[in-house]
C-alpha cells in the first residue's frame, strides 16, 4: 500500500527516544526531566505500534495501550514527588537533591 518501510518509523522512534535521553540527562528542572521521560515514551510507542503493523497483529497496539497506563501512573507519582520535593527545598534543581552521595 505504501512505500513507507518499518525503518522510517524506527528511525523516528529512535530520534525521539534519543532526544528524550539528551533532555533527561542535561536539563536540571525536575518537571522537564519528567517531560523528557514522556518524550521517550512517545518514541517507544511509535516503535511498538510500527512493529505491530509490521507483523500484522494487534499486540503492538495493546502493548502501547499499557504503555499509556504506565506513563499515566509514572506521571502521577512523579509529579506528586516533585511537589513534595519542592515543598521541602523550595527548588526544583536536580543538583540540590544529592543525599544519595553519603
Amino acid at each position: 500500500m505504501n512505500e513507507l518501510s518499518l525503518h522510517n518509523y524506527i528511525l523516528v522512534g529512535a530520534v525521539l527516544f534519543g532526544i528524550g535521553v539528551i533532555g533527561f540527562l542535561s536539563r536540571r528542572n525536575l518537571i522537564i526531566i519528567f517531560l523528557c521521560t514522556e518524550l521517550m515514551f512517545q518514541g517507544i510507542i511509535v516503535n511498538v505500534v510500527a512493529f505491530g503493523k509490521y507483523h500484522g497483529n494487534l499486540q503492538g497496539q495493546a502493548f502501547a495501550l499499557f504503555l499509556l497506563v504506565i506513563a499515566a501512573v509514572e506521571a502521577g507519582l512523579a509529579l506528586a514527588l516533585v511537589v513534595v520535593l519542592f515543598r521541602r527545598k523550595g527548588t526544583l534543581d536536580s543538583e540540590s537533591f544529592k543525599t544519595l552521595r553519603e
Binding site: 524506527i10 528511525l11 529512535a14 527516544f17 535521553v21 533532555g23 540527562l25 527548588t91 526544583l92
Partner: peptide, 30 residues
C-alpha cells in the same frame, strides 16, 4: 531560575543521546 538557564553536562548528554540514536536507528538494516 538558574537551574532552568543552565543545563547539566550538555556534551556528555548529547554524546550519549547520539550513541543511543545511532545504535537504535543505524543498526537496523532491514
Amino acid at each position: 531560575s538558574l537551574y532552568d538557564r543552565k543545563s547539566r553536562a550538555p556534551f556528555g548528554a548529547c554524546l550519549a543521546g547520539f550513541l543511543l540514536m545511532a545504535a537504535l536507528s543505524g543498526a537496523w538494516t532491514p
